[in-house]
Computed example of a mutant assay.
Amino acid sequence: MKIVAIIPARFGSTRFPGKMLALLQNKPVIVHTYESVFNTGLFDEVIVACDDEAIYKAIQLAGGKVVMTSPTHLCGTDRIAEAAGNLDADIVVNIQGDEPFTQREPLEKLLAVFRNDVKAEIEIASLMQPLKLQEQIEDPNFVKVAIDLNGFALYFSRSVIPYNRNNIGAKYYEHIGVYAFRKSTLLKVTKLDPTPLEMAEQIECLRWLEYRIPLKMVITEYNRIEIDTPEDLAMANNMMNRPVKNNQL
């Protein structure tokens, strides 16, 4: 089974334009992300799919593999599908370019879904982690996922799901936007028209559920800093500047 990681990286960003090239410890964010993913040792290939010449050159200078994709893509899934079109791959993993602290263990759990799927029935898998703080549970920036008894997604929402009417200790999970696709499924979902729930919530993977494509969820602890704003970048730089204790940053 050949497994490829593709990191979509676009220059534009509403909250932080050019964040992929913002310097984190004197190295662009996208280079940190590429190196973190490559250093997991889990992938046969790691490729950055970008829409900008400067990002392209930054990855080349770092010795990485990079491809130029269309600047018109509206989401990372479409961008990685273009990059994956002619690749020899069974599984394609989408890892966001603004996650420079990507770690091995969550990705290992994600890939185990396919290695254990002897009948090749699972088409897409993704990550989730427990949410315990009430302010995060209520925050629409934290996408929540409700799952069935077999760990497949029932629904994703920016609202609080499930609604804990009788205060019986409901569990809440944050969806982590890391996806693993069978290549054939990746190419299929990018041809699907947008759907009502997807457009209402502005959550892409709802489209797949609306078309009845099962999405297996994998629970993990995914402590990370996404570089969404200049404040996130400052936090990440501060974290990397701290002395290392017990092999942890």
Score class of each variant (00 low, 15 high):
108 E>A: 10
194 P>L: 02
83 A>R: 04
48 V>L: 10
20 M>T: 02
138 E>H: 11
210 E>M: 01
236 A>L: 10
43 F>L: 10
95 I>D: 00
14 T>V: 14
112 A>L: 12
57 K>L: 14
241 N>R: 07
22 A>L: 02
65 K>C: 03
107 L>V: 09
187 L>P: 06
33 T>Q: 00
82 E>Y: 11
168 I>Q: 09
75 C>H: 11
215 L>T: 10
85 G>Q: 14
68 M>I: 12
164 N>M: 07
46 V>G: 05
156 F>I: 06
160 V>Q: 13
79 R>A: 13
209 L>A: 13
221 E>K: 15
180 A>L: 05
238 N>Q: 09
49 A>W: 03
246 N>Q: 12
28 P>F: 01
200 A>I: 15
99 E>F: 01
164 N>K: 10
158 R>S: 12
144 K>V: 01
179 Y>N: 05
80 I>D: 02
107 L>F: 06
10 R>V: 13
175 H>P: 03
70 S>T: 14
85 G>W: 13
97 G>F: 01
34 Y>K: 02
92 V>F: 04
142 F>M: 08
137 I>G: 00
145 V>G: 02
135 E>A: 08
196 P>Y: 00
24 L>V: 07
23 L>M: 12
6 I>P: 01
31 V>H: 03
237 N>L: 04
77 T>G: 05
170 A>S: 08
89 A>F: 14
163 Y>Q: 11
122 I>T: 15
188 K>T: 10
152 F>H: 15
169 G>H: 07
59 I>V: 14
106 P>M: 11
66 V>N: 04
220 T>E: 06
121 E>W: 06
106 P>L: 07
26 N>G: 11
197 L>Y: 06
72 T>D: 12
135 E>H: 11
245 K>Q: 03
21 L>W: 03
205 C>S: 12
201 E>M: 12
75 C>R: 10
186 L>S: 05
46 V>L: 08
198 E>P: 01
79 R>I: 11
57 K>A: 13
15 R>M: 09
30 I>Q: 03
128 M>C: 07
214 P>D: 10
7 I>Y: 02
92 V>D: 02
118 V>I: 13
87 L>S: 06
190 T>K: 13
